[in-house]
Design a protein around this nucleic acid. Structure first.
Lengths: 224, 224
DNA sequence: GGCGCAAATAGTGTCAACATTTCCGTGTAC
DNA sequence: GTACACGGAAATGTTGACACTATTTGCGCC
């Protein structure tokens, strides 16, 4: 974080937080960076007051760490916190799958069953080694499920923990065999959703996340 | 919220939020109350800047609602939100019970098995109609479990949703037969914890919360 | 007497200036 | 040569004033 981020010239009041959030969660502003109020104020062309409000919000979201009279810096999360977050994620995503299965008509998931089927388009993506594209599709499925769960409280919580681990999630996908394993597991819980079996779908989704945790534990030295 | 709350004369900077949080979550400051920055600034004997910071925190926690140029008021939550929160709670508390069972030595829960046993002291409390005291014990058990789960992320999330529904939870306890049913269910999941069966303990805890939801649904007209 | 428009009023949003604390470099003494 | 102390610079914390928006009040007109 040395120079002004190229696109930061927006003077709109609302989304200073949004820009910083995105920057931090994508590691465009890497962990440990110091955030100086005066510099940010100049970059965003606003007063320090607004910057300070934005910083308090980021602090509350746990994205930055502030020490009195010494400034703010982007929080680095250690592996302990990552595992804590994953446990929370397991519970929340599991519940989302359950609710989505109960609330949305079964046909909703038909297209995903087809995408994820053995020999289907998504499997071909992984075979080609295009993990990045697969990850984007997976993200879309996740958002669709959260939407179908129709629970803003859950959605907000997931949002607030994912903005901290987005980079880690992407790195996990690249670990040896992870994407292929993940696809099989995704296929499993989506099939259960298509069948309307909410209980089983939740179980499978949770097992899916636990599986990701195990992979992460095995390769943790490569991630952080 | 007309006059200054009697004890509000503290000038300490940190816990303005704490005071307001407690006031709102206990309904001492009832839903719909308008929070005027200038008035609060005078009551707490601090500058408006501090008040505004406190308000942004409360807004992020979902305790107040702010509309631009029109001020802030204590959020009223409708039944829809309450049920959303309970679904999230089911997922999170279930996970807490699972983790607590896995992480803490089994003997930890022995005292609770005894307290909750058939004909035990807690059952006697309910038979006497002292639901209030039972609720306090239950709260202590909850906190003990969260502590044993050793997961600050989960703890923070539960904290942030309970401060919104504390009043509702207490009202549910008073509904006909709810306390007695709750006790049986608590006994069940604590017994599983004592036995070290994390999977079953989680299931039972979740069933316990779903049971509370059903009671709430049945009597919702009396609650809100 | 009621309705509409305009001015006054109250309250929030924003800013620039001032006060305080921390950090870093320099100098001196041992 | 090292350690301690002092001072200056830079960044954060705090305050009061100003600008803008929405609401209400009062006046005139229908």
């Amino acid at each position: 974080m040395k120079k002004k981020t190229a696109t930061a010239a927006r003077s709109r009041p609302v989304d200073i937080v949004q820009v910083l959030r995105d920057g931090i969660s994508s590691h465009a502003i890497p962990p440990g960076s110091k955030l100086q109020e005066a510099k940010l104020a100049k970059d965003f062309a606003v007063s320090r007051t607004r910057i300070r409000e934005a910083l308090t919000e980021l602090e509350l979201r746990g994205l930055i760490k502030r020490v009195p009279n010494r400034g703010a810096e982007v929080a680095r999360l250690d592996l302990t916190q990552v595992f804590e977050i994953y446990d929370a994620r397991e519970a929340l995503e599991g519940m989302c799958v359950r609710l989505a299965t109960q609330k949305a008509p079964r046909e909703t998931w038909q297209e995903w069953v087809e995408q994820l089927r053995e020999g289907g388009p998504l499997e071909k993506l992984i075979d080609k080694g295009d993990v990045e594209s697969y990850f984007l599709h997976y993200e879309r499925l996740r958002r669709r499920i959260i939407e179908a769960a129709e629970n803003p409280v859950l959605a907000g919580m997931l949002d607030s923990i994912l903005e901290k681990t987005r980079v880690i999630m992407r790195r996990v996908q690249i670990l040896p065999g992870r994407a292929a394993t993940g696809l099989k597991e995704h296929r499993a819980f989506v099939t259960a959703m298509r069948a309307g079996d909410a209980e089983r779908a939740e179980q499978l989704r949770r097992e899916n996340i636990r599986s990701a945790i195990r992979t992460l534990k095995r390769f943790q030295s490569f991630i952080l």
